[in-house]
């Protein structure tokens, strides 16, 4: 007999007792070793341009709202080789981090302006405007919101002519492993869009690897 799938279209609010103690869902598609590929649109007034981008998750610590990995930009015009950067992510979990960045030259208005670019953010916007989303229970929401900040260049020097001054507003879909993001840097073109899809690297399905630190 067919079963009806209950849709959780909007996250609920947490009760006062649990305020600030919810974690986003553990999602196997966002676990260590997982790879994503896609593009970042870096178009400016002068020309349309998109760089191919590969991302690999290297570390995930949901308790601390932490995620990290590498990002590889493939067809960067001023670089001879692909440019790899290491980034660290803040997971918006209402416990460790809220929707308000509070640093990196991002005002609450900048935050809202970027988050609202994600359709999946629309059910949350009211609550976020009210309290930064502190009272939201995101533990069963199908989307995970993050900020990814590149920390250093892995394979090129800082004199490579590229900047990692900005950061990404990121929305991950637990459903299909797709990632959308917008790069924010007051000194760069606004709303550079990052679009990534979970890759299965030529396999007929999804493969997983893992490590465990001691």
């Amino acid at each position: 007999m067919p079963v009806r799938v209950v849709e959780n279209s909007a996250p609920s609010q947490v009760s006062g007792a649990n305020l600030g103690h919810t974690s986003p869902p553990a999602c196997t598609l966002l676990s260590v070793g997982q790879a994503f590929s896609g593009t970042q649109n870096v178009s400016s007034v002068q020309k349309d341009e998109a760089w191919r981008v590969n991302v690999r998750i290297q570390g995930c610590d949901l308790d601390h709202g932490y995620l990290c990995g590498t990002m590889e930009a493939l067809n960067v015009p001023m670089a001879d080789t692909p440019v790899v950067t290491f980034w660290e992510g803040e997971i918006v979990d209402a416990k460790n981090y809220t929707f308000f960045t509070g640093k990196w030259e991002a005002s609450p208005e900048d935050d809202i302006r970027h988050w609202t670019k994600f359709p999946s953010f629309s059910p949350l916007v009211g609550q976020v405007e009210a309290d930064g989303g502190k009272s939201l229970d995101l533990s069963n929401y199908q989307y995970i919101f993050m900020r990814w900040k590149e920390q250093y260049f892995v394979n090129v020097g800082t004199d490579c002519g590229l900047t990692i001054a900005g950061f990404y507003y990121v929305c991950f879909s637990c459903n299909d492993g797709s990632i959308n993001g917008f790069y924010y840097d007051p000194n760069s073109s606004p709303f550079q869009k990052l679009e990534l899809k979970s890759t299965n690297e030529g396999r007929s399905g999804f493969s997983f690897s893992s490590y465990e630190l001691q």
Partner: peptide, 17 residues
């Protein structure tokens, strides 16, 4: 698997779907 369409774990539920 059909019986798990409303699994309390979101990850399970999504893979079941």
């Amino acid at each position: 698997i059909k019986n798990m369409a409303n699994d309390p774990c979101l990850d399970v539920k999504l893979r079941v779907r």
